[in-house]
């Protein structure tokens, strides 16, 4: 008898493969405006943001679906949604 396959996964980046192919717009952060508040990282429904050593948000484009929530939430309009080619 073969091993039972369970429909379980460890939560984390990439459990569903690269979800970036769903994206038609990408968030681009203007670091000159960014206040390092971290709201983009907090609201992102995917683990598509990380905070770098200097405290700035970095988008992980492999997992970003381009939903635009970060763009919507940024209090200083530091995020722009740019069309994918």
């Amino acid at each position: 008898m073969s091993k039972v396959l369970y429909p379980v996964s460890k939560p984390g980046a990439g459990a569903v493969g690269k979800t970036s192919t769903w994206r038609w717009q990408r968030p681009v952060i203007n670091l000159d405006k960014c206040t390092k508040c971290g709201l983009c990282w907090l609201y992102c429904p995917e683990p598509a943001f990380e905070i770098n050593e200097e405290g700035y948000p970095v988008v992980k484009y492999d997992w970003c679906k381009g939903c635009g929530i970060c763009y919507n939430e940024c209090p200083v309009n530091a995020i722009e949604m740019v069309n994918e080619e």
Binding site: Y6, P7, V8, S9, P11
Partner: peptide, 9 residues
């Protein structure tokens, strides 16, 4: 911890 029934490929 695992999640059950999450979206896979």
């Amino acid at each position: 911890p695992y999640t059950i029934g999450n979206l896979p490929e």
